[in-house]
């Protein structure tokens, strides 16, 4: 009983923290001034939000009986976390790289109020 309460609270806390990261990422994408700085929340906070919520799911699948099936499910979810943790920042890096190569200048404080050249 106590174990279930502790497990459930861990799941709830992880999901809430993950959602907080997602919310921060969404606000950042909307509020930041230019392409590069918008990729910053898109890359970092989404990765963290996905990781947190996925870990919460991995814990949740173990809560209802610690069986081999449940263990396999949570292992698979943890694998998803690992792959997202590797690929999502790489994708952001690739997009930034493409932006730099295409010649998009980063936003600077002097030309605030205007479109980035």
């Amino acid at each position: 009983m106590l174990l279930s309460i502790i497990g459930n609270s861990i799941v709830i806390i992880l999901v809430l923290v993950g959602l907080l990261f997602f919310a921060g990422g969404a606000v950042g994408i909307l509020r930041f001034p230019d392409f590069y700085s918008r990729l910053h929340p898109a890359g970092k906070l989404d990765t963290m939000g996905v990781s947190m919520t996925m870990i919460a799911m991995a814990v949740y699948s173990l809560l209802h009986g610690f069986t081999l099936t449940a263990l396999l499910t949570s292992l698979k979810i943890m694998l998803i976390v690992v792959f997202i943790f590797i690929t999502s920042p790489t994708a952001t890096h690739a997009i930034v790289d493409a932006g730099v190569r295409a010649g998009l200048a980063p936003w600077a404080k002097e030309d605030s109020g205007e479109e980035a050249p």
């Binding site: 792959f83 590797i86 690929t87 790489t90 890096h93 690739a94 790289d97 190569r101």
Partner: peptide, 15 residues
């Protein structure tokens, strides 16, 4: 041609 990007290349080799 663009120079090979080490990060992208290694990640894809991994994946």
């Amino acid at each position: 041609w663009v120079p090979y990007d080490l990060i992208i290349k290694i990640t894809c080799r991994l994946l």
